[in-house]
Simulated scan of single mutants.
Amino acid sequence: MTPVKATSRRRGRRHVQPEIGDDVWQPAEDWEAIKIGTTVEVTLPAGHSYTGRVDSKTPDSGLVWVISSAGQGRQMYGNRDGVRLRTA
């Protein structure tokens, strides 16, 4: 007796793999040297930038909180978000 191969009843359904581009994964920024209280220039992935002060950060420097000098509040950034911090 020859085994019969079962056919799929879900014809027409294909799983599309998402395209992986440069904007999906960003290399980690090294924020170890940036100290709390330091004034930094924050450059966002879209190209916009502003000046602020580092308010807090995690012990591994993976997350930082920056208070905007222009009064736009406090923002949290991860070192893999594509955000660049440069001391001002």
Rank of each mutant, 00 (worst) to 15 (best):
R53W: 01
L44S: 01
G47R: 03
S56A: 10
A70M: 07
S56E: 09
S69W: 00
S49W: 07
G62Y: 15
L44V: 02
Y50C: 03
L44G: 00
S69G: 12
G71T: 09
S56K: 09
V54T: 00
G71V: 04
G62S: 14
A46E: 13
D60N: 13
S49A: 13
L44I: 02
S61C: 08
T51H: 08
P59Q: 06
V54S: 02
S49L: 10
S69T: 12
V64G: 03
S69I: 06
W65G: 11
P59A: 07
D55R: 11
P45C: 05
Q72A: 15
R53H: 10
W65V: 11
G73C: 09
K57G: 04
S49I: 00
D55T: 10
D55L: 11
R53K: 11
P59K: 05
S49F: 10
G62N: 13
V64M: 07
R74P: 06
G62P: 01
A46F: 08
I67N: 06
Q72G: 13
R74T: 15
G73F: 10
G52I: 01
W65M: 10
D55P: 01
T58L: 05
R74S: 13
V54L: 09
V54M: 05
G71K: 06
V64Y: 05
G62C: 13
H48N: 14
S69C: 14
G71W: 05
V66S: 01
L44T: 01
S56T: 00
S61V: 01
D60I: 03
V64N: 10
G47M: 03
S68K: 06
D60W: 00
D55A: 11
L63P: 01
G73S: 07
T58I: 02
Y50Q: 05
V66F: 02
Q72I: 08
Q72T: 12
T58K: 04
W65T: 11
A70Q: 15
L63D: 15
K57A: 07
S49N: 12
S61K: 07
S69K: 10
T58N: 09
I67C: 05
S68H: 15
W65P: 11
